[in-house]
C-alpha cells in the first residue's frame, strides 16, 4: 500500500469525487449530480473524465465498490470512501488550505478586487 503523500496532489475532479463519496455511500451518477450542485455547474466533467477518475481512485484503494445494491431496473455499483481515501482527502484539504493561506497573506485573494 502506498503512503498518503504518494497520492497528492489530487486532481480537481478526484478531490470533488472524494468529497461527494465522503459524505455518504453513493453511486457514480449521484457523484456527478453532487459535483454539479456543489460547484453550481462550474465543474461539469464529462462522463469519460468522471468515471476514469473514479476508476483510478478505486484502483488506488481510495474508494471501495460494493458490487450491486439498490432498486431500479439496473443494478448500480455503490461507492464508499475507504480509510485511506479519507486520509488522503484530509491531507489534500490541508495542502490546499495552506496554499490559500499563503496566497491570502500576499493579498492575492479574489475578494480584494
Amino acid at each position: 500500500m502506498l503512503d498518503v503523500d504518494d497520492h497528492l496532489p489530487l486532481t480537481t475532479v478526484a478531490f470533488e469525487i472524494l468529497l461527494a463519496v465522503g459524505e455518504r455511500e453513493t453511486t457514480g451518477y449521484e457523484v456527478m449530480l453532487a459535483i454539479e450542485a456543489r460547484t453550481a455547474g462550474r465543474l461539469n466533467p464529462n462522463p469519460g473524465t468522471l468515471y476514469r477518475a473514479i476508476d483510478r481512485l478505486v484502483g488506488d484503494g481510495l474508494i471501495e465498490v460494493t458490487p450491486t445494491a439498490g432498486g431500479g431496473t439496473k443494478p448500480r455499483r455503490r461507492l464508499s470512501i475507504s480509510e485511506l481515501g479519507r486520509a488522503v482527502l484530509a491531507a489534500e484539504s490541508d495542502r490546499l488550505a495552506a496554499q490559500i493561506d499563503a496566497a491570502r497573506s500576499l493579498g492575492a485573494s479574489g475578494s480584494t478586487r
Binding site: 453511486t27 457514480g28 451518477y29 456527478m32 462522463p47 469519460g48 468522471l50 468515471y51 473514479i54 476508476d55 439496473k74 448500480r76 455499483r77
Partner: peptide
C-alpha cells in the same frame, strides 16, 4: 465496470 453508469450519466 462502468459503462451502464456512464450511459446513465450521459
Amino acid at each position: 465496470m462502468w459503462s451502464d453508469d456512464m450511459v446513465e450519466a450521459m
